[in-house]
Amino acid sequence: MAKFGGINLSSSEEVLHKTEDSDSTSESGALELRNLSVGYADALISEINVSIVQGETIAILGSSGIGKTTLLRTIAGLIRPLEGEVIHDFPKRSGIGYIPQRLGLIRHSSVRSNVAIGARTRKPKWYPALFPLGSELNSDIDSALAELSIGEYAKTPVRILSGGQQRRVAIARALVQKPKLILADEFLGELDKENVDSIIQATKKLISETGSTLIMVEHHESRAYQIADRILRIKDGKIVEEVSQ
């Protein structure tokens, strides 16, 4: 199914629950972007109306500099929308896993410490920052490291890993959070096909286990089709195409 030039891209019946107030209802895992305009001084993308159900994988396609990262940062709550709303009921803590374009890893910390940052969000806010995580979270970290084939580098500082291995660490960090939503900004970077395939496979498996929604920005069309349930194409500051598969 493809819609060209459509503004209201999804009125999917599968949307579980919508709410205006993110803190007032039970967590449905649904996300709605309503009349959203994103940008800094001027709008880069406007009139975004998208509804996303829990567990869906969305790929956002578009050329460089068009505002895809800005859209992702707005959904993550890092910048305010110029207009409209991002409506969801995810918990503020651990609800969103974010993999920025530059991965956002702590270069001097070990692989395990980096992934542990994600796991820590599953502890309550008041849990002291210096206290250990406990056996359950530690075993989740071990599983995520093993699933993404980086278990042997657990004690290695991230700065000396290859680009592909660093991407696996960033994915493990987001997934071990068990977030409702994962926002990934070109998280596959310029990896070779073999690496891309194996990361996509591991990511898909872990997402299906955690039931997380994934919104990814991608500029490789083939990768977007390989992983996403729905593809949104952005052009001239608007969403111009939606493809479900």
């Binding site: 503020k92 803590r93 993999i99 969000t121 920052a129």
Partner: peptide, 24 residues
């Protein structure tokens, strides 16, 4: 980028300080 990730994840100020800012 590490700070933005930590903020999006919902880490508290002390967690960001201990696990992101100090190591970075």
């Amino acid at each position: 980028a590490p700070l933005e990730s930590a903020m999006a994840m919902g880490l508290t100020h002390s967690e960001r300080l201990v696990h992101v800012v100090i190591p970075e």
